[in-house]
Design a protein around this nucleic acid. Structure first.
Lengths: 118, 118
DNA sequence: CTGCATCCCGAATGATACTG
DNA sequence: CAGTATCATTCGGGATGCAG
């Protein structure tokens, strides 16, 4: 397989991952659902003080569309909606963990450089 | 450690990773440098037909700022500049590979759903 | 050959008010 | 409580022309 094609295919995979969890709040939402299980809309909202209702709804809709989370609505008054990771969403766990780990090493690396300069 | 704090820290790491490789062309640039080693500016440009000069320069500058790649300029006429992964940049390899792998599984997963529906 | 500066656009994000 | 609608804003991405 020519290099260009292989590179392009590799990037497709990475791009797909980025498309799915690249939103500004998606990583945090996924992380919360991964570690704390099912959450109601209001609970998520309270745990994400800087996210507006509209944005939260938006991000949740996209995650649902991409089959990473499951939305369960109860037809009650008052309304009640619960979100949880799907089985497919749980397969993101290792990637999420890896990125988290690398990110921390990166932050430390940058700080070590900074302090070394000054 | 309270849940909110742990979540926030976890997200910091993920966010740092996203900041660093989240640009539209960065994953591909990193992948090429990872697999093919040092490249001249013009070579990269030819391998990324859809990226404008300006964007390529931009992305390379950011990657350099984040210490993922090394820029070596030769003071010649005509100018010659080579880019290569730094040691730190190479530590991204496993993350890149993981994301690539998950992305592909995701693409297949979505296609299996689509074909199942129709 | 390589890179910078400038302008421009559309998408993503965010604030606010309203509804079942 | 959960969600929609609308409008403002910010920002990444892209085109073009110039420069060392």
């Amino acid at each position: 397989m020519p290099e260009e094609v292989r590179d392009e295919k590799a990037t497709q995979g990475i791009q797909a991952t980025l498309d799915v969890m690249g939103g500004k709040w998606k990583p945090l939402i996924l992380f919360i659902l991964l570690h704390e299980g099912t959450k109601r809309f209001g609970e998520l909202r309270r745990q994400l003080p800087n996210v507006t209702q509209g944005m939260l709804t938006n991000q949740l809709r996209e995650l649902e569309r991409d089959k990473l989370i499951v939305r369960q609505a109860y037809q009650e008054i008052p309304p009640k909606v619960e979100y949880s990771l799907s089985d497919h969403g749980r397969t993101l766990s290792s990637v999420l963990t890896d990125m988290c780990g690398w990110g921390y090493k990166h932050i430390e690396f940058m700080q070590s450089i900074k302090s070394g300069k000054e």
